[in-house]
Amino acid sequence: MRSMSPLQNVHIKGFYGDYENKDVKNLIKVGEVKDLLIFQIVKYKKSNIKLEDIKIDNLNLSDKPHRVVFSNETRILWIGPNNWLLTSKNKKLITNIYHLFNDKDFAITDLSHSRAIIELEGEDAKEVLKKGCPYNFNELNESKCVNSIFNGITITIDMIHDSPKKIRLFSLRSFGESLHHSITDACLEFGYKNI
């Protein structure tokens, strides 16, 4: 069976908005991230396991709020107390994850096909998000993540790079198209390139 990307019907490559007479390098780039392994990891309250003892792709689970620990292929986002979102391009991690996290201490859920992921790249990426999200983006630095809303849609924001600004947005798959419309609407005044 062929898998369909959540934004297949709306994400069409090209230039949009106020892009004329502007340097292409300075335009916001909007991309869809596909084929990412996404796991929610929840540690049970009664669990006595130490987080330092667990390593996935040489990364520890961090209990610091909004912290992202990352390697070349894998990022682990803090999304709540004892709650993490693991994203990775390395599909081989699946077997490791089920082996590492025993079901007495952790609840593991595969969310790989239930999220739409949009990546924004460009100096105005934060300005776009400010239009629909009440979060104070001055506090969002590199390798920090935050859960918030964008025009009423619950999203997870992962700040991948500060310079150039690169931000990854996760939403429920069913909200993907709406989020894409909202984000691209907010991008129009800057001019953007769907990649």
Binding site: P65, G80, N83, N147, S148
Partner: peptide
């Protein structure tokens, strides 16, 4: 409930 945040 911080429903669109940490869900606590």
């Amino acid at each position: 409930q911080h429903i669109s945040g940490c869900r606590q």
